[in-house]
């Protein structure tokens, strides 16, 4: 890892590390709580993909917006939704960011520009294009980022949304998190090209492949694309090669993956890589790392306690927000 073409202060670098750590510890907690049957429904955790959400979103302001997927806890936390509101939502409590009416797959907080986790594959892509359209319409210097998986690049909404944004030259960045599996199926079994970024040429836009486990590379490449979007140069498709360390959802152990593949990717864990970089460059020492770790653990524990203590929604929520 190196900091080439990236000018981030030590404070900013540490803040990025802390966000990645928050996502990791949050997701580990969710995974454990789910195993204890304390969380209803289903959940899709994102351990191993933290460098993508944090690397991209570190370039965004509060006015910029994102759409993400059902594997969206990481993006939601990185964009600034309070951990306790995310946790309470996952528990189906009235204090959740969506009053418990959305759940793990629909984490949304418009007040921080998190337009939603879209649980239908690819559905957030045209919605991000629409947000980009609104920025262009109002001559605002903001950008919209759509996060989606490799599997989404095979669905119609991807094609329609990317073409639409390209034709109208909208300030949108399409970020594909290629974690090598669409649910249980390996990429090469379902996808006609080795690199999702190759598809960009079909839409007349730039496509860039980046090491999705290297947060500084993700930051650098997405900064260029976001700057281009703000400058009216239209969209970019960024493919972040990364790995889903857990299974697809709930209790899926992901046994369809070869052990050697899992081992190789675990060695390239994005938090380990970034931590090594920060330590070897004297940016983070053991005591500051421990302090950070205990701070993040406390935030997650408090979020858990908040979710536990919160009430379920009352009956008057059952039919509210339909069209009244």
């Amino acid at each position: 890892m190196k900091q080439q073409g990236v000018s981030l202060s030590n404070k900013e670098l540490l803040s990025m590390f802390e966000k990645m750590l928050l996502i990791r510890i949050f997701e580990d907690k969710i995974h454990a709580l789910f195993a204890q049957k304390l969380i209803p429904g289903t959940t899709h955790v994102c351990q191993g993909q933290e460098a993508v959400s944090v690397g991209v979103i570190s370039n965004l302001s509060k006015e910029d917006v994102i759409t993400c997927t059902y594997r969206g806890h990481g993006h939601s936390l990185a964009k600034g939704i309070e951990p306790k509101k995310v946790m309470a939502e996952i528990f189906g409590k009235s204090t959740g960011c969506c009053k418990g009416k959305g759940g793990s797959m629909h984490i949304t907080d418009l007040s921080v520009g998190a337009l939603g986790s879209f649980a239908i594959v690819g559905a957030g892509i045209p919605v991000a294009a629409g947000a980009g359209l609104s920025f262009k319409y109002r001559h605002l210097n903001h950008a919209a980022v759509a996060f989606f998986g490799d599997g989404a690049s095979n669905i119609g909404a991807f094609h329609e949304g990317v073409n639409f944004a390209s034709v109208l030259k909208l300030p949108v960045v399409f970020v594909c998190e290629n974690n090598l599996y669409g649910e249980y199926s390996p990429l090469m079994k379902t996808t006609s090209v080795p690199n999702i970024a190759d598809r960009a040429s079909a839409y007349g836009i730039n496509g860039i492949v980046v090491d999705g486990n290297d947060v500084l590379e993700v930051y650098r490449v997405s900064k260029g694309a976001i700057d281009d979007a703000r400058a009216g140069k239209g969209p970019t498709l960024i493919e972040c090669k990364t790995y889903r360390q857990k299974g697809h959802s709930r209790t899926d152990p992901g046994k369809y993956r070869p052990d050697s593949e899992v081992r190789e990717w675990m060695e390239r864990d994005p938090i380990r890589l970034f931590g090594d970089y920060l330590r070897s460059n004297g940016i983070m020492d053991r005591s500051s790392e421990e302090a950070m770790s205990s701070r993040v653990n406390q935030v997650v524990e408090e979020a858990y306690q908040f979710a536990l203590d919160s009430p379920y929604p009352s009956e008057n929520e059952l039919e509210s927000n339909v069209y009244n």
Binding site: V127, A129, A131, Y137, G161
Partner: peptide, 12 residues
Amino acid sequence: TAIVGAALGSAL
């Protein structure tokens, strides 16, 4: 799909 999706995004 893009027409309706973009309408939603701009309405938000």
